[in-house]
Computed example of a mutant assay.
Amino acid sequence: MKVFILGATGFIGLPAAEAFVRAGHIVYGTSRSEKTAAEKLGPREILPVVVDVFSEEGKKKWGKIAAKCDVVIDALSANGAKPAVDTFHNFLDYLDRPKGSPKPTYIYTSGLWIMTRGYGGLEKWTDERQPTTTYNESVQWRPLIEGPVLDSEKVHGIVIRGAVVYGRDGSGIGSYIFDEALKASKTEEKIFETIYKEDTRIASIHTDDMADLYLRVAERGPICRGQIFLASNQFSERLTDILDAVVRVSGCKGYRHKRPQGSSQEAWTSTTLAKPSLGDALTGWKPKKMSLVDGMDIYWSAYLANKKLQKL
């Protein structure tokens, strides 16, 4: 297959692109800069498309290339419904295939917080087949793009809702926890501030396991069309257990509570109980990486190594 990945240099997009390359597919990936493309894409056998994805010139450039591909994956950073919808419509505008031709697959990367139900009780658990909720204000725009992708007659539309993604340079785990712990480890007090609640449990997934789900779903596009897949481990982890593990590996002595500011940070502390099922049932997908708590020595070491690379 020919695969086009929007956001191919990102925390989610790059591992996904690498997974497709390893599987033998031809992979195109977008980057905003020649330097990043040269460092991250070309050496990994990913064909760089250097564009501003949202500019008129950029839309024209990547739209023409993507229209000739079998799979398009939107792994761009979440900036609200409008840019995501515009990105999808730009692809459709350039899509012009003879009648009866196979449809391309379009995968939109969504998030798990749209399914948050809160903590406790069997009725609070959910999977891909449950409706979205209004619990988290910061993600209420998600269905506005998920719906058009899933309902389109021009593509095999698929949505992958990612849990809290970890591994490599850390992503949300990095910015909310690792960065703070690293700064505190260099102080005399060695106490870091972070946002948490005592009863918060999070659903999580390693970026490589999420990449494997993209690959499996994309290769089965006609079968998986119209479905929402949860990219999540089969278990949740207590946020304070994660913080305790960070204290153990970072050299810090402890942590203190910091009040969340805004709906996005409130979402970070909201418990998400979600059990994936369709990934396994339809593609045989099973996450393989260790949990955050069990693999913290590895993930902290990888985070530090990536911080050093970023300074080079």
Rank of each mutant, 00 (worst) to 15 (best):
H25A: 15
I26C: 13
I26Y: 12
I26W: 09
I26T: 15
V27M: 03
T30E: 06
T30S: 12
T30M: 10
R32P: 09
S33N: 10
E34Y: 08
A37L: 01
A37K: 00
A38F: 00
A38S: 07
E39H: 05
K40I: 08
G42Y: 00
G42V: 01
P43L: 03
R44F: 00
R44P: 00
E45Q: 14
E45L: 09
I46E: 04
I46C: 02
L47S: 02
L47E: 04
P48I: 02
P48K: 01
V49S: 12
V49G: 12
V50N: 08
V50R: 07
V50I: 14
V50L: 09
V51D: 15
V53K: 12
V53I: 15
S55V: 14
S55E: 09
S55I: 13
S55D: 11
E56Q: 15
E56N: 12
E56G: 07
E57I: 11
E57Q: 14
E57S: 13
G58C: 15
G58T: 15
K59T: 07
K60L: 12
K60C: 07
K60V: 08
K61L: 06
K61E: 08
K61T: 11
K64A: 13
K64T: 13
A66T: 05
A66Y: 04
A66E: 03
K68F: 07
K68I: 02
D70R: 06
D70A: 08
V71G: 13
V71N: 12
V71W: 11
V72L: 15
V72D: 11
I73G: 05
D74R: 09
A75E: 11
A75G: 14
L76S: 05
L76V: 12
S77C: 08
S77A: 10
S77D: 06
A78E: 02
A78W: 04
A78M: 02
N79C: 05
G80Y: 01
G80I: 02
A81L: 06
A81V: 01
A81N: 04
K82H: 02
P83I: 04
A84L: 03
A84Q: 08
V85E: 06
V85H: 01
V85P: 00
D86W: 01
T87H: 02
T87G: 09
